[in-house]
Simulated scan of single mutants.
Amino acid sequence: MRRLVATMTAVLLAVVFPAFTPPAVAAVETGYTALFDGTRASLDRWRQAGPGGFSLEPDGSLKSYGGMGLLWFPERQFRDYSLKLDWMMPGDDNGGVFIGFPDPQGDPWKPVSQGHEIQIDASDSSTARTTGAVYSFQAPDVAARDAVLNPPGQWNSYEIRVQGTRIKVLLNGVLVNDYVSSRDVASGHVGVQNDGAGLDISYRNIRIKEEGLAYGRPVAVSSVEQGNVLVGAHAVDGDPATRWGSAYADPQWISVDLGAVRSLARVRLRWEVAYARAYRVETSNDGTSWTTVWSTTAGDGGVDELTLSGVTGRHLRIYGTQRGTGWGYSLWELQVW
């Protein structure tokens, strides 16, 4: 009898108080860094400015309450990046993603005047204040937006690309806004808004990739692998699944025109299996006369994070002199900061 009672008690406790299962950590694409991944540890890295806030839900999402406030990421400012996240409104609610603002010092209105809000609002009377808009500055392409926008109660995804002062907004993978700002938003913090009581919104899986000065810039290469389409532009297109591949010979090179003379502090190379054993990094102001600013003869593939000091140049070239395999040289990504 005691064993039966104990068994029944255990069953009832399991029903009334089911075991807590922590949410799965959100997957992050290659090249991206999670800022909020559904865990308490990642949420604790953020800071709330203004009233209200966000609760961490059992499914790993953030749910707003009160406001108007802003949950922002204080650890650093970002430049030349792709910011991705998912959002969901249960009804005719309101929220937004903020970019390019300095430390708000506790005031959620400072990002409104010093950065930009990428709006989330289904029904404002002005299209410049509806989903996909750069709030009050430029309306989205309404037809493109409406064709892909999921209805209230379903999740949508934003990708916000910032290059200098140019802002591109992609909704569920489709470009819905392309705006060049007159504000100094090239570098700044990012955050998500809790607009007010009863204006509920949820966010999840916030991640970022700094794409750098080379993103989308003109590229020249010494060669392309014969019979293939592994062109040089693939190394700077921001797509981790495309790559440049050279002919199977030494030497080979890839260069990128950064558009103007820049101060250069860091280079990231993400090699495919066909990596460089020996190579050098060169810079030039005219694309003709080159100066070596970094070199190695012991490359081992994978990801190379290179630090530069006191380096300037308009053009940057990766010049391979010895292959690490029998294939050519191949880069998934060439990024410059």
Rank of each mutant, 00 (worst) to 15 (best):
A6W: 14
A14W: 10
F17A: 08
A19V: 15
T21P: 01
P22L: 12
P23F: 09
V25K: 12
V28H: 06
V28L: 11
T30L: 13
Y32T: 00
Y32N: 04
L35D: 06
G38W: 03
S42T: 15
D44L: 05
R45T: 14
R45V: 11
R45M: 13
Q48F: 08
A49F: 09
A49I: 14
G52I: 12
G53S: 10
S55N: 14
L56M: 07
L56D: 05
E57T: 10
P58L: 01
G69D: 11
L70Q: 11
W72R: 02
E75R: 12
Q77N: 10
R79P: 07
D80H: 09
D80V: 04
L85T: 11
W87N: 02
M89L: 14
G91C: 07
D92R: 12
G95W: 11
D103Y: 10
D103Q: 06
G115W: 11
E117H: 03
E117I: 09
I118D: 01
I118K: 00
A122V: 04
S123V: 10
D124I: 02
T130E: 12
T131Y: 07
V134H: 00
Y135F: 15
F137E: 13
Q138T: 05
Q138C: 07
A139E: 14
D141Q: 13
A144K: 13
A144V: 11
D146F: 06
V148E: 07
L149F: 03
P152L: 07
W155S: 09
I160W: 03
I160K: 00
V169G: 07
L175P: 02
D178L: 09
Y179D: 13
V180I: 15
S181E: 10
R183T: 07
S187E: 15
V190W: 07
D195C: 13
G196L: 10
G196P: 12
I201R: 01
I201M: 09
S202M: 14
Y203M: 07
N205L: 03
E211F: 10
G212C: 08
L213A: 04
V219Y: 08
Q226D: 15
G227S: 13
V229R: 11
V231T: 14
G232T: 12
A233D: 14
H234M: 07
D237C: 05
G238K: 05
P240N: 03
A241Y: 13
T242V: 11
R243C: 08
G245M: 06
S246Q: 06
D250E: 15
Q252G: 00
I254E: 05
S255F: 01
S255D: 12
V256C: 02
G259Q: 02
G259L: 03
A260I: 03
A265Q: 12
A265M: 01
V267G: 03
W271A: 03
E272G: 01
E272F: 09
E272M: 08
V273K: 09
R277G: 00
T283I: 13
T283M: 01
S284P: 09
S289R: 07
W290L: 05
T292E: 14
T292F: 06
V293S: 04
W294K: 00
G301F: 09
D304W: 00
E305P: 00
L306H: 01
L308R: 02
G310L: 05
V311S: 00
T312E: 06
G313V: 08
G313D: 06
R314T: 08
L316Q: 04
I318T: 02
G324V: 12
G326K: 03
G326A: 11
S330R: 02
V336I: 15
